[in-house]
Amino acid sequence: MIRLTDVAKDYPRSGTALAQISFEVKKGEFVFLTGPSGSGKTTILKLLYMDDKPNQGEVWVNGVSSTTASGREISRLRRRLGIVFQDFRLLEDRTAEANVRFALEVTGAPKATIRAKVSRALTQVGLASKATSYPRELSGGEQQRVAIARSLINDPFVLIADEPTGNLDERATRGVFQLLRDINASGTAVIMATHDLDLVRRSNYRTIELNHGRLVFDSAESPLSARPSDETMAEIEAASDTRENA
């Protein structure tokens, strides 16, 4: 369903972002993407939703290849992906409901189906009662739920989440994470970038770890230990500590 083959990405100013990345994600899988900041997590996610193309290798997502994809194909692909960010990316001047509806409207969905789909998505994330609230009237956790509802509206085969709990307190984090697990349980694959090691440890999902743009660990490949090495773990923690203290 998703396959990266020997992918490399360089940026003209900041240099190598990714090198020799290869992995596959199967249908319905839940995958954590971990690593210190700047390790390339966000870059991988960008390559997955084809916001960027690799300099080398191939990213293959649901039949669309990064080497040949046209703008139109990429647009079509994104309608089958759910994408969620740390900063929610909601439109402040629209209600929760309008934010979710927006994703359907701009893809030219038939009007008749929109209302039902929107209310179903909001119910799924537990926000049916806040449909008419504006983002500023919602808590961080609620805003992220609206963003998730928006990402679910087109029945994606995979949900790509870039630090979805990065801006949330512990309680909201647990709630959002549980929501992602539920979504995964209903058959949608989830690829979640995070440096919240507690989340990674507590659950038993596949973990891919990056460091300096290289894949240093994939729990699917090393069945003996389903955890990143202590060394890199310490490095990750140190990096996230530094960030928290900054």
């Binding site: 703008g71 647009s75 994104r78 309608r79 089958r80 439109l91 927006f102 701009v106 893809t107």
Partner: peptide, 17 residues
Amino acid sequence: AKEISIMRLVGATDMFI
């Protein structure tokens, strides 16, 4: 700009935008 970036993420075509 934000609206446009969201439109692109959810799969609106460039022509549509």
